[in-house]
Amino acid sequence: MTPDQVRATYDESYARRYDASFLLNPSHGFRDKTLLELFLLRMLTLQADSWLDVACGTGFFLRHGRGNPSLRCTGLDLSPAMLARAREANPEARFIEGDFLAPHPELEGRFALTTCMWGAYGLQESVEHIARLVENLVRWTCPGGTVFMPVFDPAGFVTLQAEGRLMKVVTLRAPDGTRWSYREPDGKLHEDVLAPPLDVMRAMFEPAFDSVDLRPYPDTPMAALIARGRRVPGG
Rank of each mutant, 00 (worst) to 15 (best):
G98K: 02
E97H: 01
T74D: 03
G109D: 13
R72T: 06
A131K: 09
G67Y: 08
R110E: 00
R87S: 01
M117L: 03
C73I: 08
L133W: 02
Y121R: 08
D99N: 15
G109I: 10
R72L: 03
L107S: 09
P105C: 00
H104V: 10
S79R: 15
A112G: 00
E128D: 15
A120I: 10
E128K: 02
T74I: 06
V127N: 08
R132P: 03
H104G: 04
S70W: 12
N90G: 07
Y121N: 11
I130P: 09
N136P: 04
L76A: 11
A112W: 06
L71T: 13
L133N: 10
V127K: 13
H104T: 04
G67K: 01
L71F: 04
P69M: 02
Y121M: 08
M117Y: 03
Y121S: 06
F95A: 11
F95C: 06
R72C: 15
P103I: 07
E108H: 14
E97I: 05
L83Y: 01
P80K: 05
L78Q: 14
E92R: 11
F95L: 08
R85M: 07
Y121A: 15
V134I: 00
S126K: 11
R87M: 05
A93M: 02
D99E: 02
G98H: 07
S79H: 02
S126D: 08
R94L: 04
W118Y: 15
L113W: 05
H104K: 00
D99H: 04
D99Q: 05
L83H: 03
V134Q: 03
N68R: 12
L133T: 15
L78W: 01
C73H: 08
N136A: 06
F111P: 15
L107R: 03
C116H: 01
E135Y: 11
G109T: 02
R87C: 07
Y121T: 10
R87G: 09
A112T: 08
L123Y: 14
L113H: 06
N90M: 13
L83T: 08
E135I: 06
I130V: 09
E106G: 09
L78A: 09
T114P: 09
E135Q: 00
G122A: 13
N90D: 03
S70N: 14
S79E: 12
H129E: 15
A89Q: 15
I130Y: 10
T115W: 00
A93G: 08
T74G: 00
A89I: 01
G122S: 12
N90C: 08
E92N: 01
T115H: 12
T74F: 02
A86R: 06
L113Y: 09
L101N: 13
Y121K: 07
L83M: 07
L113Q: 14
R85Q: 13
F95T: 02
M117C: 05
D99F: 03
R72N: 08
G98E: 13
P91T: 07
E128G: 12
A93K: 12
N90E: 02
E125W: 04
L133M: 15
L101I: 03
E125R: 15
E88Q: 03
A84V: 07
V134K: 00
L101Q: 05
I96N: 01
E88L: 14
S79Q: 06
I96C: 05
W118S: 13
N68I: 05
R94F: 00
L133Q: 11
L123F: 12
I130A: 14
G122I: 12
A102D: 13
A112E: 10
F111Y: 09
N136F: 04
P69K: 07
N90K: 04
L71Q: 05
P80Y: 12
R132F: 09
